[in-house]
Simulated assay, not measured.
Amino acid sequence: MPEKSHPRRGSLAYTPKKRAKSQKPRIRAWPEGTSVQLLGFPGYKAGMTQIFMIDDHDESITRGQEISVPVTIIETPPVIACAIRIYGSPKDRNRAITEVWAENLSKDLTRELRTPKEYDQKEALKKAEELLEDQAGDVRLLVHTQPRKSSLSKKKPEILELQIGGDPIMDKWEYAKEALGNEIKVSDVFEEGKYVDAIAVTKGKGTEGPVQRWGVKVQPRKVQQARRHVGTLGPWRPRRIMRSVPNSGQMGYHQRTDCNKRILKMGEDGSEVTPNGGFLRYGPIREEFVMLAGSTPGTTKRLVCLRQAMRPKKGVPTSPPTITHVDTSSQQGG
């Protein structure tokens, strides 16, 4: 009789499970956008609530009926395009060859980096246009957030590099020049009903054992040693602990991507979605917001980067849904 087997405990696809270098997520891949516009936008996670909407999925057994949906509210204050970054040819696309910075940068930006006191933007634009002809391979936009406009008690902005959609590099360049130094709203990037990817750093849980971290089975009570550990650390040879052995260590605080989150609502009036007394540990929504179906990685107040869906679903509704009620009851308890 063949020996029984079962899949290993925990996926090795996310190893090594170590702490993220920064709370600011790093986006390493972008979809191929057809229109010339930004493909991503940052925001701050305010919290979760629930709404009632009309189910518009064709194959759903509750189609046309009112259903309850948990949603995440992300506050998205406008960002400012502070610089244009030009990358080299396709063979050297990972090396930035020049940058063009905006004039009259925000004073809060000095909390993040040193800004030049004397800067000739015209000379930088002239140099960039010369490089676009033969050496440039891509054009991206550097933006910084404005946390002062949100309910966060912080002043230091985050600087992110966002991809510009479209194929001709000159079209990207013209879009970047027009946006340089100006505010960009989330409504300029996304639409209601569309799907996005939410990228953020998850909630940190510190050091955990193999049972909590990998899901290994708790051993019987008659074992001589501890019960909440692995039965063996591996074979005699090779004389080392292999990477596939579940061990204790850091759990949480990892960068993760949650794919295909539907934008159910976008608005400028935060009172529409703010609970009585404000969101727990966040407060009221003061600026534009995005309502996503389901949960997103990270804790309250954490930076979440929204990106146009890399692998969009097929056969799903992409038009704005009909929302009948938004739960704004108090979350303060008592």
Rank of each mutant, 00 (worst) to 15 (best):
K4Y: 13
R8P: 10
K24Q: 13
R28V: 01
R28F: 04
G33V: 02
Q37P: 15
F41L: 07
P42Y: 05
G43M: 11
Y44P: 06
K45F: 04
G47R: 05
M48Y: 09
F52W: 12
M53I: 12
M53K: 15
M53P: 08
D56T: 12
H57Q: 00
I61D: 12
T62H: 10
G64A: 00
Q65I: 01
E66M: 14
P70Q: 10
I80N: 11
A81P: 04
T98P: 09
S106T: 07
D108V: 04
L113A: 03
T115C: 14
E118P: 00
Q121H: 13
E123I: 15
A124V: 06
A124E: 10
A128I: 03
E130Y: 10
L131S: 03
L131A: 00
Q135G: 04
V139D: 06
H144S: 01
Q146C: 09
L152N: 09
G166I: 10
D167Y: 06
E174M: 04
Y175E: 07
E178F: 04
L180F: 04
L180Y: 03
N182I: 04
N182L: 08
K185P: 07
S187K: 15
G193Y: 08
G193S: 06
G193N: 07
V196Y: 09
I199P: 02
A200N: 01
G204V: 11
K205V: 00
E208I: 01
E208M: 05
V211L: 06
R213D: 14
V218A: 08
Q225G: 15
A226C: 10
G231K: 10
W236I: 11
R237N: 05
P238D: 13
I241D: 06
G252L: 07
D258R: 10
K261G: 09
I263N: 03
D269N: 03
D269F: 01
S271E: 14
E272R: 14
V273L: 02
G277Y: 02
V290T: 05
L292T: 09
S295C: 08
S295P: 06
R302H: 11
M310K: 11
M310G: 07
R311V: 14
P312T: 06
K313N: 00
V316T: 06
T322F: 03
T324M: 05
G334I: 14
